[in-house]
Write a protein that binds this DNA or RNA. Structure first.
Length: 516
RNA sequence: CGGGGUGUAGCACAGCCCGGUAGUGCGUUACGUUCGGGACGUAGAGGUCGGAGGUUCGAAUCCUCUCACCCCGACCA
């Protein structure tokens, strides 16, 4: 094969072996998105060392690397909450059954997915074969493992609020919740998940509504500027809103397979929970009035959004603002002496980069070859990789590779400190723009039910279409196409049209998609 | 809850149809050679074959029951 035309044949041979080799190696790692998107996602979560299934049904173990990304999200969000006047607090994991029953639509919404504590003691089996629940230790009243905390929090608010002077109450809690889902998927839907839930109480409807929309803006800001995921802000239809809310607002993101993902919600609760828990205050006029409420939350589901929005067949792609490691430095060396020389240079580069607030990892393990490390950090989505070898030491250069485009460049060592922060910023911008471009290209206006169905099957994505505003049409469309109204976009312009399903008049387009 | 699948070494799997020394790859340990895109050699360690019962001289393998998890649906702030 190589012997015929030495030069051309040789390079062709090398090239081909490389491709075959690469294909095999990649196949060994993660499924291609094009072959099976769902499997790609699962492979990626596991191979990037983000999380794994635990032996507890529907529950995941979030591994250190995955958790460190979640911590970065928490830090950024927590600051945004504090900056908008909120404080953190903590309420119990357990909710007495009677609490949950107080708000009718709330209990309807969650009843089918609750974990319930009925006993408080175990004992040895009489036959000595392990342990059993002690039937004598039955609880007077069952405890529900919180699926969300409105009830237990409003029960406290009743004690805390007497006068308009006690308002507003602006509280957030970081915690775990349990929803006994039929079917689970790592990060996207797990029986137990981590989240934050904000719960605020206000003297007026106007103020509560303002809070609801303010937090929606915070979420959108976070999604776009930290996660680099463009989102559409909107209002949920009656059928899709939170049980117990007057209005539910949300941010909706589009994943690479054309399915929508609800990335955060903010609810205007009206006086529903105040009514249920009898939370009244004396207003300035000395009259008793019910308190107005909001609640809002984002969860570890954001991890799913982050993964699916940007990553490729080689692994995770992380936005620099949420990457636990910004820059990984891989030394290329043969001997310990070479490594020692390189280390000296690396230390000075790493120190200067760290002074800029960057997380820099120097991977000087001698147990893995450089190629292995390159692949590993690509899998983990580290935005920038610097390679330094003997050749670089001679030339005073380094090799810089960016994860988002896989481009490599040779950079002068003295430029590194100036250029890397710019490069990270460029990556942050680039992946946002790429995601936005994808969304734009996969958002379609459709005016007939046939085109709607065709679009869903042939070119999945967001669909903007007219809807008559009725539950009946919404339900029928969902039943027939599995597409749901993701939201009524807040910025939707008034536009006269006809509902794609019923043909009845409509004054604006709403956002449809199949969703996670 | 319906459909499908899987439980055998840390991980991925073969062996089962047709019963008879529990295997392969990766990882791991030691040593040596390697190191600019996923290295290789040699030697070693590592297994209640998901669980219970049954058939049999003998069960990872056949039969019955059972448990668990995963995937695809249905459901779902």
């Amino acid at each position: 094969m190589i012997k015929n035309t030495p030069t051309a044949g040789c390079s062709e041979y090398i090239c081909r072996t490389f491709v075959i080799r690469k294909t095999l190696e990649m196949g060994k790692d993660i499924t291609n998105r094009a072959d099976d998107y769902s499997q790609w996602y699962i492979d990626l979560v596991k191979k990037a060392d983000l999380a794994e299934n635990s032996d507890v049904r529907g529950c995941m173990v979030i591994k250190p690397y995955g958790f460190s990304i979640w911590e970065k999200m928490q830090q950024a969000l927590d600051k945004m909450f504090k900056d908008t006047g909120h404080s953190n607090a903590y309420f119990p994991l357990f909710i007495p059954k009677s609490f949950l029953a107080k708000e009718a639509s709330h209990v309807d919404g969650f009843a089918k997915e609750c974990a319930i504590v009925t006993h408080y003691r175990l004992k040895n089996n009489p036959d000595g074969s392990g342990i059993m629940v002690d039937p004598d230790a039955k609880l007077e009243e069952e405890l529900i493992v919180r699926p969300t905390s409105e009830t237990v929090i409003w029960n406290s608010y009743k004690k805390w609020i007497q006068s308009y002077r006690d308002l507003p109450i602006l509280i957030n809690q970081w915690c775990n919740v349990v929803r006994w889902e039929m079917r689970t998927r790592l990060f996207l839907r797990t029986s137990e998940f981590l989240w934050q839930e904000g719960h605020t109480a206000h003297a007026t409807s106007k103020e509560a509504e303002k809070e609801t929309l303010q937090m929606l803006d915070v979420y959108a800001d976070f999604a776009e500027n930290f996660m680099a995921v463009p989102v559409i802000k909107g209002k949920k239809s009656e059928g899709e809103k939170f049980p117990g809310a007057i209005d539910t607002y949300c941010i909706e993101a589009l994943m690479q397979d054309g399915k929508a993902l609800q990335a955060g919600t903010s609810h205007f609760l009206g006086q529903n929970f105040a009514k249920a828990f009898d939370v009244q205050f004396t207003n300035k006029e000395g009259k008793l009035e019910l308190v107005w409420g909001t609640s809002w939350g984002v969860s570890t589901r954001l991890m799913g959004a982050l993964i699916m929005a940007h990553s490729d067949d080689d692994g995770l792609i992380l936005p620099p603002k949420l990457a636990p490691i910004h820059v990984v430095i891989v030394p290329i060396f043969r001997t310990e002496e070479e490594l020692a020389k390189i280390s000296a240079t690396v230390e000075s580069i790493a120190t200067s980069l760290r002074k800029l607030g960057l997380a820099v990892k120097f991977d000087n393990r001698d147990t893995y070859k450089p190629g292995y490390k390159f692949a590993e950090y690509e899998m983990r989505g580290v935005p920038v990789r610097i390679a330094i070898g003997p050749r670089d030491l001679e030339n005073g250069t380094v090799e810089v590779a960016r994860r988002d485009t896989k481009e490599k460049q040779v950079m002068k060592m003295e430029d590194v400190v100036d250029e890397i922060p710019k490069l990270l910023e460029a990556i942050q911008q680039n992946i946002y723009k790429r995601a936005l471009k994808f969304r734009t290209e996969n958002t379609r206006k459709v005016d007939s039910y046939n085109d709607f169905k065709k679009a869903l099957d042939e070119t999945p994505g967001f669909i903007l279409a007219h809807w008559d505003g009725t539950k009946e049409s919404e339900a029928a469309i969902k039943e027939e196409t599995k597409a749901t109204i993701r939201c009524i976009p807040l910025d939707a312009p008034t536009e006269i049209g006809k509902c794609i399903y019923s043909g009845k008049p409509s004054d604006r387009r709403v956002l449809f998609a199949r969703a996670y």
